[in-house]
Amino acid sequence: MKFKRKDVLGLEELTAEEITLILDTAEPMKEIMSRDIKKVPTLRGRSVITLFYEPSTRTRSSFELAAKYLGADTSSIAIATSSVQKGESLRDTARTLEAMAADVIIIRHSAAGAPHLLARWVKARVINAGDGAHEHPTQALLDMFTIREKKGGFKGLKVAILGDITHSRVARSNIWGLTKMGAEVRVVGPATLIPPEIERLGVKAYYDWEEGLKDVDVINVLRIQLERQKKGLFPSIREYTKLYGLDQQKLQVAKPDVLVLHPGPVNRGIEISPDVQDGPHAVINEQVTNGVAVRMALLYLLMAGGEKDELSA
């Protein structure tokens, strides 16, 4: 099969077949990570630039290791979001990166759509590592890889996404990916953090955790941004934890073998209780491993094979 994309900007545009190909390709990549010598020469001589407008150590490291395990050279550019409006424009940064002959640019940006603009401006391949509250395709892919590995597939699986849906790119990408693969997706959170008309994306929305988590196979717990409280989206951390923090009591209504995911980093004891986080249902650390494998798969699929010119965007 041919992976015909120039860029990977979101799961909205990927088909179920493409998602399956990425997950299938990630399996042998995970094997490479278990070796003593974690390096193959596949992308030798290729350059990967991470362009991060938001601080993120884990996603950036994950991408850089993925590129290095495949033999590519990596370089990172970090730009403080605060300087976006005063500093060099994204347009000019794109010109600079183009001039450096980067093969792949991995961009994280606080503005939704920034990777899409960049992809239009540069010949290099662009991977979205998170744009505002829009999409975070590689996080959703690693979540899906983890779910598939543990549950065997997606058809008929009940998956609850718990927390701040409105501001979550992880939620949106998971919704796209999981619904395409045949899972039944619910979003659970306070009314102030569930965006309007979300159900048009093919999910069911619940304000009541008991209804929302009932009989689910997977719970993907979202990180709660503490600054949302200051904007009046929930009255206090205490009340949020009481109503939506995942603890043993709430876990009881889910299936006995429920899988608990979290994109990290975790606000310990806030959106998830320590005993659940460290308990047998949680696979948070495996998610991190799988993240590298999924990103290796994407880099391979984007860069190995095919001339850029014949690829459609």
Binding site: E12, R169, R172, P196
Partner: peptide, 13 residues
């Protein structure tokens, strides 16, 4: 606009 498309795009409505 706040609505389906702002939800889809994650842009503030």
């Amino acid at each position: 606009n706040e609505g389906f498309y702002s939800t889809l795009l994650g842009l503030q409505g």
